[in-house]
Design a protein around this nucleic acid. Structure first.
Lengths: 217, 217
DNA sequence: CTGAACATACCGACCGGTCGGTCGGTTCAA
DNA sequence: TTGAACCGACCGACCGGTCGGTATGTTCAG
């Protein structure tokens, strides 16, 4: 970034952009072919560099994948947190979280692919990784549900389990959408899914019918 | 079958048992290490035979996996269908299906592993396979829900989507249970999950509170 | 009953290809 | 000139699948 001034980039800048270039290429290749089926040579080629070049910036293939997962998850989590922060009422918060995830994936099919297609399989290595990821998001949901319970907005439930179930439902819906080529837009699933999930935890019909505000996309 | 008569098994019998022995070994190895990380030599070793022996009974590694998936899915589907057939009322049928799946997995951790751990990843080959599998079960759920809608037991909904969501929720709950070593028994999740899912499609609180009969395990 | 002829089940060394990772060398900005 | 960035030939492990061979039946003519 920043060639607004002079001409040739500094070494540090070149290195940084190269790194990102590789990350980008890896992202796309992993996304299309999966972890195991992606060869380092492919990543190198996609990044317009050589295998040696890639290994200058990253120690192992796994490290690339880890970094990709981590930063992607961080980005998503940030988005969710921001969406949630805009709401004060607990049900609206849970709703906002659901909406944020769905809309983010809808807008970034490839990001979704990295999460879901690659999530399982391909060795124990990042079953742990994936595990943690799922935990993280299921935990987020559970936290919002806990708030809702605490404020009496919904009756008490096993929020940990429900968080997992919600995440699973969301996960599967997105995964199906990914696997079908000419699928309906993911947004179309939102109303039904919203109603299904909210109803499931005991939100009243009236409350479900009343949509939360739609200020942000 | 049939060693009730004489002594040494016939060639055909030996062949059959060997085949099953290999299938068994493959099942366990796939289950523990995943498809890609399982070498044919490992399967052979686990089956107390040689690679050549394995390749005498099966043409490719993929063929073994396919057969495993297919028969396992068939067994599960049969169980579900039997459980459902015992019920006449639509909600009870959906409930029975849910219960059957959960209980079957609870009893056969390894079966669950084959379905969920291996499900994704490891090449395009059986993304199609897995896809179909998920479709099949999500479709089954949708069918029962359709019946329930038709009979007016629950309000109209997008049953296809809900089927996917239900399956996803179930899937994730089982997957989490699999990944945690000292997890609580899977059955413990049933009441909450049942309530969550049934409530989600608009089953009345009264109806949810009234448990269906518990004749069979 | 017997033993050649044939079939079935199985073995394990080997092959061909892939792929993660290495290393000696080159380039070029500072 | 120096060293960070980069290149690409190469290595070695791994693995799916093959293949020539063996051993254990099974069949059937004599």
């Amino acid at each position: 970034m920043s060639r607004l001034d002079g001409q040739t980039p500094t070494q540090a800048e070149r290195s940084r952009s190269r790194r990102e270039q590789i990350l980008d290429a890896a992202f796309h290749t992993f996304t299309r072919r999966g972890y195991r089926d992606t060869a380092m040579d492919e990543i190198a080629a996609a990044a317009d560099t050589s295998k040696g070049g890639v290994y200058f910036h990253f120690p192992t293939k796994e490290a690339i994948f880890r970094e990709l997962i981590r930063t992607t998850a961080d980005r998503l989590a940030l988005k969710v947190e921001r969406a949630v922060a805009e709401q004060t009422e607990p049900i609206a918060r849970a709703d906002a979280a659901l909406r944020a995830v769905l809309m983010t994936f809808a807008g970034h099919r490839t990001m979704a692919r990295l999460f879901f297609i690659d999530a399982m399989g391909a060795g124990r290595v990042f079953n742990a990784e994936t595990n943690e990821l799922h935990d993280r998001f299921a935990g987020m949901i559970a936290t919002y549900l806990d708030e809702a319970v605490a404020e009496g907005a919904i009756p008490p439930i096993d929020t940990a389990l429900v968080g997992v179930a919600w995440f699973g439902a969301l996960n599967e819906v997105v995964a199906r959408w990914l696997l079908v080529d000419d699928a309906a837009p993911l947004e179309a699933a939102y109303p039904t899914l919203r109603a299904l999930l909210l109803r499931g935890v005991g939100v009243s019909e009236a409350r479900i019918a009343a949509q939360t505000d739609r200020a942000v996309s």
